[in-house]
Design a protein around this nucleic acid. Structure first.
Length: 312
DNA sequence: GATCCGTGGTA
DNA sequence: TTACCAAGGAT
């Protein structure tokens, strides 16, 4: 129960839930009889609710198909819903004295620092290396204590930030400490997360002139662009654009609209261009000077063709 | 292998 | 404000 609750969850956050669950369901058969609504109600606020559903499903499976007896080995535990490489090893080493390493986030951090391992722990393939390394380190008859000791060290002293090497019992043997690169371990290549943005540019035409504005922030700061309305989703209808904008677009007659996605390394742009006639906005740029301005590339690609269409 | 799932704490 | 992260697992 505790190993399931403590997946990706701190002890102080999960402790009360653990107490509730063992009080409500002292035996696996008690849990197996509970309804899913009941279990999820108890789980409420803890997050990762599939854990609660898998917990119940596994309790029922153990009662219905395993005669109420838990598997002993990590290999067999691994087959149960909600129990993966870490949890199976943790349970088996603690409850069954199986000499197998429970590699969690703490183990990655502690071992990568102690042995100065440069492997990227964000890669799934790295797990195997750490599992084999740490399993070799298990000696004696208390593999569960060894695993928990590594986790405790990582949770209390060898923490991600503000680690306290001077308090660490392993300081003298720690390669990262000797090299003064503790802050660089573990190596975790963070994948750039790509943001979606929805940009609606207004091409406002009035008396052979076109409205532009200058960006004052962001990656295009200082460059010129068409008046922009950014939305949190893709706008496909002009009426919707008028609704979400504070601008007085009602006086503008829609001539054409055009959409083109544009991929940057760090964001996907969904760009729509809306060409309006007789718009009631400040017009400050001669149409024939438009190419002399520094527009963002996604705009540049489009401007020439659009202007041609306007002139036609 | 990449992505999603949740809430709470921290720098 | 924001990113990062915490005793991971399923898809």
């Amino acid at each position: 129960m505790s190993e399931i609750i403590l997946q990706q969850t701190r002890v102080d956050q999960g402790l009360d839930y653990y107490k509730k669950f063992v009080r409500e369901y002292p035996k696996v058969s008690d849990l197996a009889r509970a309804s899913e609504d009941e279990v999820l109600k108890l789980w409420e606020g803890l997050g990762y609710y599939s854990r609660g559903r898998n917990l119940l499903a596994t309790a029922r499976f153990i009662v219905d198909h395993l005669d109420g007896k838990f598997p002993r080995s990590a290999k067999d535990l691994r087959e149960l819903k909600g129990i993966g490489p870490y949890t199976s090893a943790a349970i088996s080493s603690i409850a069954n004295n199986e000499p197998i390493a429970a590699v969690d986030g703490n183990a990655f951090r502690v071992l990568s620092r102690f042995f100065d391992i440069e492997l990227d722990i964000a890669k799934q393939s790295t797990r195997k290396y750490f599992e084999e390394l740490m399993t070799k380190l298990i000696e004696g008859e208390r593999p569960g204590d060894f695993n928990q000791a590594v986790m405790d060290l990582g949770a209390s002293i060898c923490t991600p930030k503000k680690y306290q090497c001077e308090e660490c019992p392993l300081e003298s043997g720690c390669l990262s400490f000797q090299k003064k690169i503790v802050d660089q371990r573990p190596v975790k290549i963070k994948k750039m997360k790509i943001r979606n943005r929805y940009l609606n540019f207004l091409i406002l035409i009035k008396n052979e002139k076109i409205a532009i504005q200058r960006r004052d922030q962001g990656i295009w700061k200082g460059l010129y662009q068409f008046p922009l309305i950014e939305s949190n989703h893709e706008i496909t209808k002009f009426s919707e654009l008028k609704e979400i904008s504070n601008l007085e677009l009602h006086s503008g007659e829609l001539l054409t609209s055009f959409s083109k996605p544009h991929k940057l390394s760090h964001q996907n742009l969904f760009i729509s261009y809306w060409t309006l006639q007789s718009a009631d906005l400040t017009v400050n740029c001669d149409l024939d000077k438009i190419n002399s301005y520094s527009f963002p590339k996604p705009l540049k690609d489009f401007i020439a063709a659009e202007i041609l269409k306007i002139n036609v």
